[in-house]
């Protein structure tokens, strides 16, 4: 099985190659599709997001981890070590906690999360 670092890098590489998302819904679908594909291809761990305790698999943002931000056009999903921001315009940003940006991509409106939260 590939290391989590390798799988995360591959997930970010594939996410960057996709066209800019039109809106938040498409951005979230891109995240889910890419991460699930990478985990299905690079691990033998079944996809079971209802499994709460770590099973070694990386899961895309879940509904119950939604948070509000200072801008109503930007939503945030918290996980153990990251925050994933998605804008209504389709921008995506992943920050390692406390605040290191590890991935950023503008939405179809050309705006990044940093533009919207500054």
């Amino acid at each position: 099985m590939h290391s989590k670092e390798d799988r995360f890098s591959e997930f970010l590489r594939r996410l960057a190659l996709l066209p800019r998302a039109r809106d938040a819904s498409e951005a979230r679908k891109q995240l889910e599709r890419m991460l699930n594909a990478v985990e299905d291809e690079m691990t033998d761990i079944p996809n079971d997001p209802t499994q709460w305790q770590s099973d070694g698999r990386m899961y895309p943002p879940q509904d119950d981890s939604l948070r509000l931000t200072t801008n109503p056009a930007v939503m945030c999903f918290r996980s153990k070590g990251h925050r994933t921001y998605i804008s209504q315009g389709g921008a995506i940003e992943i920050r390692e906690i406390p605040n290191r940006v590890v991935f950023s991509k503008p939405g179809s409106d050309g705006k990044t999360i940093a533009d919207l939260l500054s």
């Binding site: 991460l35 305790q53 990251h82």
Partner: peptide, 12 residues
């Protein structure tokens, strides 16, 4: 020290 993206907690 390592916190993989979207991973569940170690202990419940």
């Amino acid at each position: 020290p390592s916190r993989a993206y979207g991973e569940g907690p170690d202990e419940i």
